[in-house]
Structures are given as structure tokens and as C-alpha cells.
Write a protein that binds this DNA or RNA. Structure first.
Lengths: 195, 195
DNA sequence: GTTAAAATTGAACAAATGTTCAAAGCGTGT
DNA sequence: ACACGCTTTGAACATTTGTTCAATTTTAAC
């Protein structure tokens, strides 16, 4: 009846995400994108609508990966707090050369864009909230396990963790000489912040 | 002998800085800039060389403002630690509507640009270092005053402060609902981090 | 008043931008 | 074989991009 799609949407999204992540929204041109994802303009616009549309889906794809990583950390560890700590370490020390950028794509988006791209800005904020809520859920779970003091506020701890991740990743981006030993810093943060 | 300059370089730089700060390097066009600083292309290029050149001077202008603000905090307070705390508070809660962006322009630069603009990236990193060194100097001064434990490492404290500033400002950018009470957070950071 | 030097103008440029659309390709049901 | 309908193509479009430069304006010294 119809021609079968040539492209695997997930595969295309991964490539687009990586490029956007590396070069930013304004720093990435459609021509640039066309080469990387190997699609012609017509196909791109038929599939994603616009540059903004593709970026939005890229943000979502990125956040899904992040959530998947968090659940992977949950399954690889024996306790919620250990999972959170592991997540933070893989986030921060993991991307030496593999990831397109040292920084979080959601943070880069929130940093770069203005009200001229209100929808994308909004979506990035929403996804950051989602991550924070996932952190909070794990902190609450830690309380249920008896791993964490019941008097603590999971939401406040999650917010604290977000601030620390944002701060650390940004700092490392600005000081990419490998002199700073991050793992020890993270251990200290968990001691100071949670206990 | 020659025509007198029509433009006050400092005034122009302030306007350019604010625009770049708000919209980013790639998000700002020369036409955009021309309107805001009220100069024609020829004059701009004769004075600043290129879009990159003007951005570089804007970065420097921005950092100078920051340093001036820090010394102002020093003069307005009675101790180095009080100065640092005041600086942090004016940085973070001060820019409700006045500043072009919630975030630090140096951080935005480091977040947005890639090796394609290596010189600008490098300059932003250098200026961030400068600020950090200024923090460290104040921590050392606090030790001389007997305000801070001599066993602490001023450089490590300065780095800690940078991470916290970057984290907090980014977080507030992503959560601009005024729900988070920042002043209390900063007080807590100083208690946890320095003592 | 003339001249020389510097600053400013703005039209113009080539290249790059995001996007469109008519044509062609291709798989499926008849 | 045929035709229907979805997918893909890539040339082309109107703007916008960063930048240049010959012409003009303005100043001050002689």
C-alpha cells in the first residue's frame, strides 16, 4: 500500500540528540543535521515538523535515556542511596570522551534559550523537574528502608542533589583539566548533605 | 586633525554585553547588535574587528563588573567571609528582573560554545578562574583575620563556592517560580561548607 | 580656506539559514 | 499488471547571516 519507512526513528533521534547536545540549538544548522542523520529536508520536515520539533523530541529522548540510567543504577545497587550516588558518579565522571558534552543537555537548553523558544524552554524545565521527582522518590524509598532519617524532606534533598549535579558538571566543563578528583567530592557531598 | 569618536566605548560595551548575555553568542545577530548599540557595521568592525572580537571584549567587561562588585562587597562589610556571603546573595537573589539573564554570562558562554570558538571558550574559562582566585584570596584573608580555621584550604573553599554558585544560579534559572527561598540556602551552605 | 587624517555610513556581497513542494520511488492490495 | 498511497528526494525559495569597502562626514592644524 505504501512505501516502508527507511529510517529507524529511535536511531535518528539518537544521532540528532548527540549533535544538538554538542552544538546547542542555535549552533546546529539543518544542513548540519541532514548530514549527521542522513535524511533529506523533506523527510525531516515530514517526520518532525520543524527544527524546533526535532529538538523537542531530542530533549525527550535525552531525558528518557537519563531515566533509564537511573533505573539501571537502582537495579545495579542494593539500596536507594547507593543508587543515587552511583547515578551521580556515572553522570559526572563517566563522560570523559564518550558524551557529546560534559554538561547536561537539559541544563544547556535552559541556559541557551530564551522566551523566543518558549516551548522548548518549558519542555526542558519540565524534564528537569521529572528527574528531580525521580530523585525524591528514591530518597523517600530510602526512608522506607530505614536507610535515611525520616525527619528529612525528600523533596529538599532532591533539590539539593540537583543543585550539586548542576554545579559540579558546570564546574568540570569550565575546568576540564583532570586535576579535580570528583569521586571524593561526591562522597563528601553525600556526607554533608544527607546526614 | 581627525574626526572625534561619536561612541563611548564603555557605554557601547555595556549594551553589547547585555544583549549577548541575554541571547547568547549564536542567538545574537550583528543586525540585532547594530540596533541595540546604534552603530553601523563599518564602525563596529573598525572598532572591534568581528562578532567574536566584540563578544570577547564583552566577556571582559562583564568580568570586570563582577570583580568590581566583589570589591564593593568587601568595602561594604566588616569581614572577608561576610563579603563573600554578601557577594553570593547579591549575585543570586539580586537579579530578579534587572539582569539580562539569571545565569552568569561566563557560565553561559562555557555552556554554549565549542571548540569552533576556542578563543572565546578559553577566555571565559580564564575569567572564571580569575573570579575563583579572588574568592580564594578572600578566604586566605579570612584566615589572617582569625575568622577562618587555618587548616582549611582557601583554594578548595573557593572551588566549593564556585560549584555552589553555578549550581544555585542554574537551578533558579530552571525553576523561576519564586518558591525557593535562596537566602536561607546560602546561609546553610556557608555553615556546612566552611565550618 | 585648504588639506590631511580619522571616524562613520550604508549599500552591497557571498554564503548560510530554515523551509517548501512538485516530482520520483516503492511497497502493497487488487 | 495496475493503481493507490505513503515516503523520500533535492532543487529552489525568501531571509538572514557576518562582513567589506568606497564614499562621505567631521575634526583640527596650517
Amino acid at each position: 500500500m505504501s512505501k516502508t519507512m527507511r529510517y529507524d526513528r529511535q536511531d535518528v533521534l539518537k544521532k540528532a540528540t548527540d549533535l544538538y547536545w554538542q552544538k546547542g540549538f542555535h549552533g546546529t544548522s539543518m544542513r548540519n543535521l541532514q548530514d549527521v542523520i542522513d535524511m533529506r529536508p523533506g523527510s525531516i520536515y515530514a517526520t518532525f515538523g520543524s527544527k524546533e520539533g526535532l529538538y523537542k523530541e531530542s530533549l525527550q529522548h535525552y531525558a528518557e535515556q537519563g531515566m533509564a540510567r537511573l533505573t539501571a543504577c537502582s537495579e545495579a545497587t542494593s539500596s536507594p542511596l547507593a543508587a543515587l550516588k552511583m547515578f551521580m558518579k556515572t553522570l559526572i565522571s563517566g563522560n570523559c570522551a564518550a558524551a557529546p558534552s560534559d554538561m547536561c543537555m537539559l541544563v544547556k537548553t535552559v541556559s541557551e534559550l530564551t522566551e523566543e523558544n518558549a516551548e522548548l524552554l518549558c519542555e526542558a524545565k519540565r524534564l528537569l523537574h521529572m528527574m528531580e521527582n525521580a530523585f525524591a522518590a528514591l530518597f523517600a524509598q530510602a526512608q522506607s528502608c530505614g536507610e535515611l532519617d525520616e525527619a528529612k524532606d525528600p523533596a529538599a534533598l532532591a533539590r539539593y542533589m540537583q543543585v550539586q549535579i548542576m554545579g559540579l558538571r558546570t564546574y568540570l566543563r569550565a575546568n576540564n583539566d583532570g586535576k579535580v578528583k570528583v569521586d571524593k567530592l561526591i562522597d563528601e557531598l553525600f556526607e554533608k548533605g544527607l546526614v
